[in-house]
Design a protein around this nucleic acid. Structure first.
Length: 946
RNA sequence: GCAGGGGUGGCAGAGCCUGGCCAAAUGCGACGGGCUUAGGACCCGUUUCCUUUAGUGGAUGCAAGAGUUCAAAUCUCUUCCCCUGCACCA
């Protein structure tokens, strides 16, 4: 049994001592591997391993391919979540403390986390130590934290350039907002980490017939306005008359409180909702006069607290009206107006749900209730379901019936009608929290605020986008199927807010009251790794834009830069050289959740800032580590701390399973029995290596050539898999199949020490990227003294790949299998054991016939050709006739009767032994066996004698 | 809704681009057997149905349906279902 913790500690120390992963420019080809740096809002759990491990596998492989590889790592701490953590600690939040304790963090450290900078420091250290334990080949001299003012200098420079190119623009933007704290709120600022989902609604003005004021109705479906029959208000709620943009409106009081953050609202007076009843207003679309009724389902705090009623297309409106009528409320002369035509219930499928055929096709919402086998008295959930169904089907398949919009799809009509209303000044857009109520951690309800001085990065800029698109053509994306998603993201990304009022990070250069948003400050930091260790000791004030202009853009003269910054010329030159050297061949790694932001943004930013030769070359997207089918997350309580998993399972077994047991893009599972399966195989290889010294060498036999053939084929397969990062293929071929082959080799009597050593040396080297500690240990056990990590990747010897030997070995297995099946049947039926088995190898004429037929596809011609050779016409016809049935399937046979005989005769001891009987191999034509004629090439006939 | 990715045997998961050697790799599970004082580990076998009183046979089959082809898990079309993302948030 391998003691992982001791070999891992040993090799990690050795690597550190020899500094083998610290890389500086030299005359080899460079290769820079960077993985999206971890956000330090949570200590390190298994979920983190995938991206960093995959990058490590690539880094280690490239190193063995002769590249000078740099794999650096930093830590991301800017933004608001860290502040939220510090605040929660200060508030003694027990949930958070419990989460942190899962990672064995001491009470003292937890209490110190009320300082956000301590959070960043502590957690970066914690994650870093987990990375060391995992054996990542990181050059730690270049590490940094994104919260460092030192790094901020670089970011300020970046934003200066983005600004000077006109990519920074200012405008209005809706955000989730806490009225109490006067802050924008994101997911981590809310109770239970709920993301406030902001949604657009249309607010339509309905002029009151008896007053110079409007009702403002909010709706998702402005296109249904022509079908409005009345307005619903909540009669027992308070409403207010208020002044917005010079006009008077009635809206619900609590709605006004929310809208206050979106509009200039001046409240004039407060009234009861009931006082609006009996009044009338005018539909701005068609001039119809609409009454106002109490709507029991109206939510006063949502939207404007006033809705237009379209009973033919909204089950709630229909039910509310019918219930009013049934309750004796005088609704006057209401006509339900159908304005969208659709085949009702078509998306529900299944005869079962359609048993109730709708009869009221003129009132679609009633028809939907019918389809769902209910009526106006349905429970609210049912109405909700009917509403969803109707909205979906009408929007998906419906055709408009309104004059001027006939035949249009609903979504097209929506755009047009909304625009028409807005152009006429009768509609505006308002925002609501779609999943309201969302509570801020302080206890207040989150509202939508429109901020009007928001800074954006304009990723929608046409020319910029066009350049990115054409650049993307040349970027290698692994796996290939992640490509479409990334292309879609490039198309889709538009204005993106880059600054916010609070959080850790760098001040926004164009307005120092803002902080640069934290995804925006981490788009080109990979370049920072190439020089930061050279600047570490300098006074920060010297890191002026001129320095970065020169180092990253080659702008200006080095002497001037030295003068302007006061930095030694030699250092500046080293920086420039280092950047140019490392930034040429790069690979960028990340998880799939970053496709729509970081991965896309980093391409844009590279294109905006650097020269073309430093633009991204390769992007690798990997899946996550899952736990019992679920994403590891705090809320599920299923987080496995990385350090715990390593202690329990060993870093290498863990790496093999989590990095290579599923393909790159798919998620991998943390499953202990899978890891134990890997450990058994590693133990097996370990035993093989330990036994190798006792083995004799000597001449090579059939099975030795077979193992060499397998080995060289394996080298090609593993290398190809690595080139495209097909890591599953890599471990299947590199580890699992190697074990299977070795077992077979030994079973067939293989025992050549030289052969086994050759095999193991290559396998161990190929395993190095996924199991580096194990590989080092085996490498040294095999008698080598240098680091496996720095060895050359094995190269196959094509001469040793031998199809014939492999197919011969397959033949042996096939015969064994057939013989076993046949003799088992005999034993079962006759209750007698087989005395011996006669194997008859097919004649050469059968091989000729098969080859001829596979070529000509002509049975007749084949038969006559065979007859010329003096073969009995009857058996020729019988044999070819049988073959001809699958004429399109048969393949050429390369092996002759003599060769086939030799192979089987050589293996008869092995076959006999494993079947517990004796084997006799004979040739068709010489054999006296009654079954001899059944023999076919590579399918010898068997006679079981009992 | 929009965008992207999927749907394969008890489960997980290859294969699909480049159609045929695919009843479909591999792993796990289950069942039967061996080994063992016993358990674990390990080894052998079975794990769609039918057929064969000796094996290399046949049918059905890779979400559903249709098509192309001598041949489809693989190519085309339609439908259904699932997952992920949708922004100022890391």
């Amino acid at each position: 049994m391998i003691d992982y913790s001791s070999i891992e500690r040993k090799w990690q120390e050795e690597w550190e001592k020899a500094k083998i992963f610290e890389s500086d420019p030299d005359d080899r080809k460079s290769y820079l591997v960077t993985a999206a740096f971890p956000y330090v809002n949570s200590p390190q759990h298994m979920g983190h391993l995938r991206t960093y491990g995959t990058a490590d596998v690539l880094a280690r492989y490239k190193r063995m391919q002769g590249f000078n590889v740099l794999y650096p790592m930093g830590f991301h701490g800017t933004g608001t979540p860290i502040l939220a953590i510090a605040k929660r600690i200060k508030d003694n939040d027990q949930d958070l403390i419990r989460d942190l304790k899962m990672f064995h963090i001491s009470d003292l450290d937890i209490s110190k986390m009320s300082d956000p900078n301590y959070v960043v420091d502590y957690i970066s250290n914690e994650i870093g130590s987990g990375m060391r334990l995992s054996g990542l080949s990181i050059d730690w001299r270049r590490t940094f934290k994104s919260t460092e003012p030192f790094f901020g200098k670089f970011i300020e420079w970046q934003f200066g350039i983005l600004g000077s190119k006109g990519y920074l623009v200012q405008g209005k933007h809706p955000v989730g907002w806490c009225p109490n704290e006067n802050n924008a709120v994101g997911m981590h600022d809310t109770l239970h980490d709920v993301e406030p989902e902001i949604e657009e609604e249309t607010a339509i003005k309905f002029r009151l017939s008896d007053e110079d004021a409007y009702l403002m109705c909010s709706t998702y479906r402005p296109e249904t306005i022509d079908g409005a029959t009345n307005i619903f208000v909540k009669s027992d709620a308070k409403y207010v008359l208020c002044r917005i943009d010079g006009q008077n409106y009635y809206i619900a009081k609590s709605a006004a409180e929310s809208l206050f953050y979106q509009r200039q609202i001046e409240v004039l007076k407060e009234i009861d909702g009931s006082s609006l009843l009996k009044r009338k207003c005018i539909n701005p679309f068609n001039g119809e006069v609409l009454p106002i009724f109490p709507g029991y389902f109206v939510k006063e705090g949502l939207g404007t607290g006033t809705v237009m009623s379209v009973p033919a297309h909204a089950p709630f409106d229909y039910a509310a009206l019918e219930r009013l009528k049934a309750g004796g409320y005088d609704v006057g002369d209401i006509k339900y107006k159908k304005i969208i035509d659709v085949q009702i219930g078509q998306s529900l499928g299944g005869a079962e749900t359609m048993q109730a055929r709708p009869t009221h096709l003129d009132i679609p919402s009633l028809a939907y209730l019918e389809v769902l086998k209910t009526d106006v008295n349905a429970v609210e959930d049912m109405l909700e379901f009917a509403t969803k169904t109707q909205y979906r089907e009408e929007s998906h398949f419906g055709k408009m019936l309104i004059k001027g919009y006939e035949g249009m799809s609903e979504s097209e009509a929506r755009g047009r009608i909304k625009k028409k209303l807005a152009d006429e000044g009768n509609a505006t857009t308002i925002y609501i929290i779609q999943n309201a109520p969302v509570m801020c951690r302080c206890g207040y309800k989150v509202v939508v605020k429109i901020v009007d001085n928001q800074w954006f990065l304009n990723y929608g800029d046409k020319q910029w986008k066009a350049t990115v698109k054409s650049t993307f053509e040349g970027i290698r994306v692994l796996p290939e199927r992640a490509r479409n998603g990334l292309a879609a993201a490039i198309d889709w990304i538009d204005l993106r807010a880059v600054a916010r009022a609070q959080g850790l990070g760098t001040r926004f250069p164009l307005d120092k009251s803002f902080i640069i948003e934290s995804l925006s400050d981490s788009t080109i930091y990979m370049a920072w790794y190439t020089i930061l260790h050279l600047l570490r000791d300098l006074d920060m004030e010297r890191l002026k834009p001129e320095l970065f202009d020169y180092v990253f853009l080659g702008k200006g003269g080095i002497e001037d830069v030295a003068k302007a910054t006061g930095i030694e010329l030699g250092i500046i030159k080293k920086c420039r050289d280092s950047f140019e050297y490392w930034y040429t061949y790069t690979s960028r790694h990340s998880g799939p959740d970053l496709i729509f932001n970081h991965l896309t943004m980093q391409i844009f930013n590279h294109v905006a800032i650097f020269d073309e030769k430093y633009w991204p070359k390769q992007i690798v997207v990997n899946g996550m580590v899952m736990y019992e089918g679920e994403k590891m997350s705090k809320s599920l309580g299923n987080i496995v701390p990385l350090a715990d998993a390593i202690r329990k399972m060993g870093a290498d077994p863990l790496r093999i399973v989590e990095l290579t047991s599923s393909d790159l893009f798919s998620d991998s599972e943390y499953r202990e029995n899978a890891i134990n399966g890997v450990k058994e195989r590693l133990d097996y290889l370990f035993e093989v290596v330990r036994g190798v010294d006792g083995k004799e060498s000597g001449g090579l036999g059939h099975i030795d050539y077979w193992l060499y053939s397998k080995l060289n084929r394996k080298i090609d397969a593993v290398t190809a898999a690595m080139e495209s990062l097909e890591l599953r293929e890599y471990s299947t071929e590199g580890l699992y199949n190697s074990v299977i082959e070795l077992r077979h080799y030994f079973e067939r009597g293989g025992s050549n020490g030289v052969v086994i050593r050759d095999f193991m040396q290559a396998v161990v080297l190929m395993m190095q990227p996924m199991a580096p500690h194990f590989a080092e240990e085996m490498w040294h056990l095999l008698g080598n003294s240098k680091f496996a990590s720095l060895e050359k990747w094995p190269i196959s010897d094509k001469e040793m790949i031998n199809d014939k030997i492999e197919s011969e070995e397959n033949l042996v297995l096939l015969v064994m299998e057939d013989a076993k099946r046949a003799s088992d049947l005999i034993v079962k039926k006759s209750q007698k054991a087989a005395k011996r088995i006669v194997v008859v190898v097919a004649s050469d004429w059968k091989r000729n016939a098969q080859n001829l037929l596979s070529q000509t596809k002509n049975p007749g011609a084949t038969i006559s050709k065979i007859k010329e050779d003096g073969i009995d016409p009857a058996s020729a016809a019988a044999y070819v006739g049988k073959l001809a049935r699958e004429v399109n399937r048969i393949r050429k046979v390369e092996i002759t009767q003599g060769e086939e005989f030799a192979v089987l005769d050589g293996a008869k001891g092995y076959i006999g032994e494993s079947l517990g009987t004796s084997i006799f191999v004979e040739k068709e034509g010489e054999s006296k066996s009654a079954r001899a004629e059944r023999a076919a090439p590579l399918k010898p006939s068997l006679e079981i004698v009992f």
